[in-house]
């Protein structure tokens, strides 16, 4: 059991006054069996009205608007969350039973359909198919994760938020988001329902209690073979004590932390900072 405090500050700076802006923020961790969310607080500057709802993928979403001229928009999400970590059970379904169940579930069907971002590279698909011939869906998924981890190099600044799986794979360089998209593409190509998970990861393997560190948004995957199973291909680790989940969907575009529109025509510039403290 671990307790974290996360302070996520993000927003936009504009080159001149913007008369109005409307945004959606997805910065609040989900509440489920694994995560207990004690408190959440959202501060928006300048202040405007806001409405919270759960979107189609059950992500807590905050829609808010600013209807006065502003040059900067800042939103700060402060969360206290406790993680309980029952060792995940290994999904055991075989290929035919898995396929049969996908047909009559929209949730699983969404998870096998490729998106523009996850559309997988051909050589990785060949690899996944070869493994799938002699292994169970779960074993195949683990092998794909290992392959992505070993072939890819984690590096910032090469791919942007709009990058797609094939580009990152061809360069063999990317960030967590690329690792996740590549993995999803390969899993879906062999028929394993898999979804994109957005959240936070404490950067230290042995977090010190009470120490505030600079973190960042993180992404990993979950696949389904009878039950959902989470795995982090960027670090080739199980999702246990350090991963805080915001939401799960088809790919990044379904749950960017902040997305909106503002009255143009000026340029906007994004800023982000994440502070994580292990509190217990």
């Amino acid at each position: 059991m671990s307790r974290y405090k996360i302070v996520h500050t993000t927003g936009f700076k504009y080159e001149a006054d913007v008369a109005a802006s409307y945004n959606e923020a997805r910065l609040l961790p989900v509440r489920d069996d694994r995560q207990i969310v004690f408190s959440t607080k959202l501060d928006i500057e300048p202040h405007g009205s806001s409405h919270e709802y759960f979107d189609y993928f059950k992500t807590r979403t905050l829609m808010f608007e600013v209807l006065e001229p502003h040059r900067e928009l800042t939103i700060t999400a402060t969360t206290n969350v406790e993680l309980r970590n029952p060792m995940p059970e290994t999904p055991t379904l075989d290929w035919p039973s898995m396929a049969a169940l996908v047909v009559s579930s929209l949730e699983l069907t969404d998870a096998v359909a490729q998106t523009k971002r996850t559309s997988p590279p051909a050589d990785l698909v060949r690899f996944a198919k070869r493994i799938a011939k002699t292994n169970s869906p779960h074993e195949t998924a683990l092998a794909v994760c290992a392959k992505v981890f070993s072939d890819m190099t984690y590096r910032h600044g090469v791919t942007g938020v709009h990058s797609i799986a094939t580009e990152a794979w061809n360069n063999k360089i990317g960030v967590c988001q690329d690792f996740a998209h590549i993995t999803l593409g390969a899993l879906r190509a062999v028929g394993i329902p898999a979804r994109y998970v957005s959240g936070y990861l404490h950067p230290s393997k042995q977090p010190q209690i009470g120490e505030t560190v600079t973190g960042e948004s993180h992404a990993w995957v979950e696949w389904w073979a009878g039950k959902w199973f989470a795995y982090d291909p960027t670090n080739d680790v199980h999702v246990l004590e350090r991963h805080v989940v915001i939401g799960r969907a088809r790919d990044y575009d379904d749950l960017p932390p902040l997305r909106g529109v503002y009255a143009g025509p000026h340029q906007s510039e994004l800023f982000v900072s994440v502070q994580i403290t292990k509190e217990g």
Binding site: V103, S104, L106, A113
Partner: peptide, 17 residues
């Protein structure tokens, strides 16, 4: 079939709720 609905260009997940 779920795939039919999921792949419809006009199945708007944003209309959920």
């Amino acid at each position: 079939p779920a795939a039919l609905v999921a792949s419809s260009a006009h199945f708007h997940r944003a209309a959920h709720g």
